[in-house]
Amino acid sequence: MALAPADRGGETTTQIDRAGVLSARRLAASLGFDAATLLGLATVVSLLVLIELLVRTGAISSLIIALPSEAIGAIFHGETLLKLAQATKLTFGMVLAAMVAEVLIAIPAGYLLYRYKAFGKAYEGWLASLFAAPIFLLYPLFMVIFGRNNFTLIFMGMAAGIIPIIVHVRLAFMSVPSTLIKVGRSFHVSERTIFWKIMVPAGAKTIFTGIRLGLIYTLINIIAIEYLVDAGGLGRMVSDSYFRFDITGTYTAIIAVTLVSVVFNIIVNRIEKLVR
């Protein structure tokens, strides 16, 4: 969620803030870094060093928290990297399959709900409820129907991701200014042309927001079910280590999955900015 920058300068910054800013800025300037970035990095590194010390001195048991140096260092081992690459490929393959199905179903469904207004009104409340509902809880049901396989994971990912796309597609077409459509008509173009050349481009931003939400919901649900049923890719990497009581391995897997997720979110945000 990108927040609008609103620098209120010295009017609302606290005394502590000012002191921190001054000292951090001086240090950052000498190192050629942005002061805020440096403070953020320094805080994360300090926390990791503190945890390392607490675990090494025995203040915190290594059976509860793994040594950060070992957990982070293990990510760069060839075996972990290979496992991570395979797990990422499997999870994102399933996300891609689910997304293709979602887009193919949700865009016509959203259009139909816009086109037939009474149906749109009848289902909008139900769709809003489904949006907030814990859809992933249906997985035991689909596990017994489809079995413990990748198809169940894809289906569950699709079930969660399809709702925001339908909602946003309908919203996108509803918000197209009627003036644009009237302009199209005044040029005597066909309804099909109006749809593809006017309505789709005009609603593209909202449709993309829905697809972005659907993508995130799909990924989260697939990883959640992978973790819970100990199958698939990234989610399984974490559960597998945990169920083997490999504490360092569990932390390594969590950090690795977090990094993959961060990179994925950065890419999605960049694409969204390009579309906008």
Binding site: I220, Y242, T250, A253, V257, T258, S261, V262, F264
Partner: peptide, 14 residues
């Protein structure tokens, strides 16, 4: 943006 479920092992351990 990270699926929170992967942090469950840490919460269970702590």
């Amino acid at each position: 943006g990270t699926p929170k479920i992967i942090f469950l092992p840490i919460l269970f351990l702590v």
